[in-house]
Amino acid sequence: MYEFDWSSIPGALPILAKGMSVTLELTLTAIAVGIVWGALLAMARLSGKPWLSWPAATYVNVFRAIPLVMVILWFYLIVPALLQQLLHVQASTDIRMASALVAFSLFESAYYAEIIRAGIQSVPKGQVAAAQALGMPYAQVMRWVVLPQALRNMTPLLLTQAIILFQDTSLVYVIGLADFFGAAYKVGDRDGRLVELLLFAGLIYFVICYAVSWLVKNLQRKSVA
């Protein structure tokens, strides 16, 4: 029978914490960029102008049809060359984090764009007409009437997507970036305690994700009431 030995975990906490900070940085950056860029894509798709909506639709559909792992790898192979050309960064600069940030942000934008588009469409046409009838130009109609209602309708979906993203960041192991999962793996491998470290990492992922989805459920209940 396998003997569990948890003794290497306390000493590994600083490394794990550093891994978690990478995970959170990736998650939060991708959420922030994803929502802003996604909102622009959504508005472009809904603009009714083909030269705006067509490229936006293509972007969204392409990214949603490609596995995330491949996007991460491609950006790892492409972004370094680009950065070196554009910014004249030294070849030695570690660009793994930069390429992962770009990859996740662009990839998540496609998903956020769809959520935001559905949110905007969930606001009844009559609301837009009422705002226009009061003399609001398009930007004000969006800012004061449509987006606040859309945001309320789509908050649960945005949070759910954030949870998925949080878990998906573990895929950066393919480019050797030490996120929370990567750090746990390294320590486990080093100490010959892979099972314990991965169980522990899984527990942390579970606790965080469960807490957030509990929050989502409560938000949903509140918005229904």
């Binding site: 009559g126 007409a129 009422a130 226009q132 009838a133 003399g135 130009p137």
Partner: peptide, 20 residues
């Protein structure tokens, strides 16, 4: 148009107050 509309009041069948 926005300027002109701001001078014309309109009332709808389904009220269309802003619920938020």
């Amino acid at each position: 148009l926005p300027k002109l509309r701001s001078r014309i009041g309109m009332v709808f069948q389904h009220f269309e107050l802003f619920p938020h």
